[in-house]
């Protein structure tokens, strides 16, 4: 927007040019807006419409009719409240663990890695070279009940069922692992941007290393923390692959329910209503979070 603002001392005689400049940002926005309209707004509208439909008969095979059937929302929420709450619980835990792992990692890459920086960044992104699904499948082999990791930990008496797979631990660990790069990269970006002279100044003013971190480095890295937690939490809350492949039947998340309502039962209105509630909840949580963390820089 800065470019559009007139600088002082300029005269505004060339009206045509100015109007042209005023339109330019909108023209630049057009492809993006068109994309959003066709691939986001229309499907979203269609989803909202579907979520209020009613079955024509007693089975989905007879199709659905447009209605204003709000009961889809109340019934599905009543039925699947456990999975719904579990999704936020698991994804919240995964976000916290990802932050605890990523922060030291990003800090190390940004400040201490020297000439290894680029290599380390490539290593952070490297898991993306293999498919999400294959990586999650690989964890089934790594954490197999008779594998050395599981047997070692259970010999220490830390596992009540002598297994990791088919427990909430496996699901949260899978979510944490799969979304870790989404946390690390924004953290790295904001840590790397910090002017080292500020930290130097802190120590010149007799701040101990930790005080310097608490008062200077951490506050300056907050935009990265906010971006990273959002990029981890949002996809994790809707994920169903980790719960499906690593969890037990008691660990299913709302994504699993939506998938099975869409694919196995073909009850589109229920599935759409659940998707919509998930969407709305995430939107509200994110708005509150961004407002409270006060990082306008991000938006």
């Amino acid at each position: 927007m800065v470019a559009v603002l007139p600088s002082s001392g300029q005269t505004f005689q060339q009206g045509g040019g100015r109007r042209g400049r005023r339109i330019t940002p909108y023209l630049l926005l057009l492809p993006g807006m068109a994309w959003l309209a066709v691939f986001f707004l229309i499907p979203l509208f269609s989803l909202a419409q579907t979520s209020l439909m009613q079955m024509r008969g007693a089975s989905p095979d007879q199709g659905f009719v447009n209605a204003f059937n709000v009961a889809n929302y109340t019934n599905s929420m009543q039925q699947f409240m456990a999975q719904y709450l579990r999704s936020f619980w698991y994804s919240g835990l995964a976000t916290i663990f990802a932050l605890l792992i990523s922060y030291p990692l990003a800090y190390f890459i940004a400040f201490k890695s020297g000439r290894w920086k680029n290599l380390l960044l490539v290593l952070v992104v490297a898991p993306f070279f293999a498919s999400f699904l294959i990586r999650t499948y690989a964890w089934r082999t790594i954490l197999a009940d008779d594998g050395w990791i599981t047997t070692t930990i259970s010999h220490l008496g830390l596992l009540p069922d002598n297994r990791i797979l088919a427990t909430p631990i496996a699901v949260v660990a899978g979510l944490t692992y799969n979304f870790l790069p989404f946390m690390t990269l924004p953290l790295y970006a904001s840590l790397d941007r910090i002017d080292p002279r500020l930290i130097e100044a802190a120590s010149d003013l007799y701040a101990k290393a930790f005080t310097g971190f608490r008062k200077v480095t951490f506050p300056l890295s907050l935009p990265g923390v906010v971006a990273g937690t959002l990029l981890t939490f949002i996809p994790a809350a809707g994920d169903y692959i980790n719960a499906q492949l690593l969890g037990a039947l008691q660990n299913k998340m709302i994504g699993n329910v939506i998938q099975s309502e869409f694919i196995d039962i073909r009850d589109y209105p229920t599935a759409a209503a659940l998707s919509f509630v998930l969407l709305a909840t995430i939107l509200i949580l994110v708005t509150v979070y961004v407002r409270r963390s006060g990082t306008e820089e991000l938006l």
Binding site: P60, N256, I265
Partner: peptide, 19 residues
């Protein structure tokens, strides 16, 4: 199964699987 039976049974079976 009829459509109605299948829907009814599939719902029970999905509930068994926790989703």
């Amino acid at each position: 199964l009829t459509d109605i039976q299948r829907t009814n049974y599939q719902k029970q079976f999905q509930a068994l699987s926790g989703a």
